[in-house]
């Protein structure tokens, strides 16, 4: 008679294994093996659902943009019309606002990349862990503070009675208006976007082998030539990715123009807000919102076509 394996032998399997077995059986019931080829779709289903909800919202906005406001009832008129789009196109104000948004986004990208590149380069190349941590801390401390709070910070710092004017007063300079202008809005946007740009640039710079730069130097290139002919071209995916993210965020920004612009430097998002919430004209607000979506999409499409998707392509084909 042989010894039969009793209950004790089952304990050879750790508890964790048995839990996992149970979970696998449960998953097999919920998601049979025959459906395994669809597992990938299952995993991206939540993301697809989110996109579908966004598309549905966009569709409703598009529908809303085709009705003018009936001011006798403050309800959208029943008739379908392109009148709201005509209003946008015929308005010198809106065209000015569109132009200001585009130029503001462009300048923000230029200045942000100019500042972010050396910062990210130093972050990646420094041999000192202390310096790297210090750079990260300096970069991320303002990142944890909301955009509105940061804008208020600039109101305090740059105001007529602010820190900067106080400092200027010490050397005999009379207080000057530093706030409520287009340059101030761009300044605020650059400061806000800097961490985003550094975060997107750093991986691209990390991927450039230091030996490549050393090799260029050993062949006689000075640092400027190395930067221009080696580092910048190899960092292009990072620059494109960072530029795109900064451009789209700046183009659609609301808080900085509202708070640092003194009411006269509106971007498109501010105009959309005015129509939705100030004049209750949701049709016109919807038309402006779609113009903003179209501008952003065209901008991104043009950059993709000209330079590829950069780091946003995640290593895939252009």
């Amino acid at each position: 008679m042989t010894d039969m394996p009793g209950p004790v032998s089952r304990l050879r399997y750790p508890l964790g294994w048995r839990v996992m077995d149970a979970l696998e059986r449960g998953a097999g019931i919920l998601w049979p093996r025959a459906l395994h080829r669809l597992t990938g779709w299952l995993l991206i289903a939540p993301a697809l659902l989110l996109v579908a909800v966004l598309c549905l919202g966009l569709w409703r906005i598009a529908q809303g943009s085709l009705h003018v406001l009936d001011r006798a009832t403050f309800l959208p008129a029943e008739a379908y019309t392109l009148e709201n789009y005509r209003t946008v196109l015929d308005s010198a104000t809106y065209l000015k606002i569109v132009w200001r948004s585009l130029s503001g986004a462009f300048l923000t990208v230029v200045f942000t990349l100019l500042l972010a590149f050396p910062y990210a380069y130093m972050l990646v190349r420094t041999p000192s862990p202390f310096v790297r941590k210090a750079l990260l801390a300096v970069l991320f401390l303002p990142f944890f503070i909301g955009q509105v709070v940061r804008a208020y910070g600039w109101l305090i710092i740059l105001g007529n009675s602010g820190v900067v004017n106080d400092a200027l007063g010490l050397v005999g300079v009379t207080p000057m208006r530093l706030l409520f202008s287009f340059p101030t809005v761009v300044f605020g946007l650059v400061q806000y976007m800097l961490p985003f740009a550094v975060l997107l640039l750093a991986p691209a710079l990390t991927a450039i082998p230091r030996e490549t730069e050393i090799a260029a130097g050993s062949l006689g290139a000075n640092w400027l030539q190395v930067l221009w002919h080696v580092t910048l071209p190899m960092a292009r995916p990072g620059l494109v990715g960072a530029g795109l993210v900064v451009a789209t965020l700046a183009l659609t920004d609301f808080a900085m123009p509202a708070m640092l612009g003194g009411g006269s430097q509106d971007f498109i998002a501010n105009a959309v807000y005015d129509q939705f919430f100030r004049t209750a004209d949701q049709g016109l607000g919807s038309a402006l919102a779609l113009v903003l979506v179209a501008l952003g999409s065209v901008l991104v499409g043009a950059v993709f076509a000209a330079f590829g998707a950069g780091t946003l392509a995640m290593g895939g084909k252009r």
Partner: peptide, 17 residues
Amino acid sequence: VENESDWFARFKEIMQG
């Protein structure tokens, strides 16, 4: 109520210049 939107738009047009 009937004219506010037009007045706001006109004021904005002047001030956003």
